[in-house]
């Protein structure tokens, strides 16, 4: 049995999510190879080869893969993946975009965002915004799986010594092209990898007030998140949304400020180890899931919290 893990990377660096996918792959019990598809992605391939527990790194370094266009990369993964029993990726925006195409090309189901491996063909995955956990069994010979990163620890990034092998095929479907991107640059840890996350909701009132969270985030080395209401209102950009349809986080400490606690928001953060809620409404549903609740006006509480940290 063998597993192909699809690397999440930006050509220069290997993203942490890949390490969670490797741990999930280990639970499948099969040999693990990693596929790095990109352009000028040698550094990412080197990093992948250092991951503990990996046999071989396959590198497809070709122009059509530079921006991870799903139309091109899916053709490559389906071709390379033909020789594997499992094709596994962390459920990042990239993998969510590409992996269902791979599954369809191989005429198999995709098992989305698994949170545990029960046996080689049986998995758990949350449905209905995490209100129900389903155990599903796959009858496909080949299994295409995406992994919820927060449910699996990261594999060791060092200690491995996998061989590196080039894959020649350059698939260019010729039906899509990259135009541009607006990527938020930040010195803070990545939202899905941070050990502390502080999120603001509609209660923050405007984008300017998110500064109140920044000072605290600086002191705690925290990432900053937001509710959908805060993103929809234009306070902060979309990549900060935590929830069912945003990012799933499970840090050691999650601080929800001015967030009411709608089920769609809870779906993205309720597996955090410790949850703190700051809300002026003592009946806000967020208090039902928080370990420590502070009923207070955030405009008083945040400056005090920051100064006393």
């Amino acid at each position: 049995m063998s597993t192909l893990v699809i690397a999440e990377h930006d050509n220069a660096t290997l993203k942490g999510a890949t390490l969670n996918a490797v741990t999930a792959a280990q639970a499948l019990g099969a040999d693990i190879d990693i596929l790095v598809a990109g352009a000028g992605c040698d550094a990412a391939a080197q990093a992948a080869a250092a991951v503990a527990g990996v046999n071989k790194v396959l590198v497809a370094d070709n122009a059509p893969y530079e921006h991870q266009l799903a139309e091109n990369v899916s053709l490559l993964i389906a071709e390379v993946g033909a020789g594997y029993d499992y094709i596994v990726a962390a459920a990042t925006a990239n993998a969510k975009n590409t992996m269902p195409r791979v599954a369809a090309l191989l005429d198999v189901a995709q098992i989305s965002e698994i949170t545990s491996v029960e046996s080689p063909d049986t998995f758990k995955r949350p449905i209905y915004a995490g209100n129900v956990i389903a155990t599903v069994k796959s009858t496909d010979a080949k299994k295409v799986i995406t992994v919820r990163g927060t449910a699996f620890d990261a594999a060791a990034a060092e200690g491995g010594s996998a061989s590196i092998e080039a894959v020649d095929s350059a698939h260019d479907a010729g039906i899509s092209s990259f135009v541009g991107e607006e990527v938020a640059v930040s010195d803070r840890p990545e939202l899905t990898a941070a050990s502390v996350v502080i999120s603001g909701g509609r209660g923050m009132q405007n984008g300017e007030n998110f500064k109140l969270l920044e000072g605290i985030a600086d002191k705690l080395n925290a990432a900053i998140g937001a509710s959908r209401a805060a993103v929809d209102a234009g306070f902060v950009p979309n990549d900060m949304q935590v929830g069912q349809t945003g990012k799933i986080v499970a840090p050691d400490l999650y601080i929800a400020v001015g967030i009411s606690g709608a089920i769609q928001h809870l779906a993205g953060m309720k597996d955090s180890k410790v949850i703190v809620a700051i809300n002026k409404d003592e009946d806000a549903p967020i208090f039902q899931v928080s370990d420590y609740g502070l009923v207070a006006d955030l405009f008083d509480a945040l400056p005090e919290f920051e100064s006393k940290l």
């Binding site: 990042t92 979309n238 990549d239």
Partner: peptide, 14 residues
């Protein structure tokens, strides 16, 4: 224009 992990990406499709 697509909402991706780092922000926004724009692609042109035939």
């Amino acid at each position: 224009t697509r909402e991706v992990d780092g922000g926004l990406q724009t692609v042109a499709l035939k």
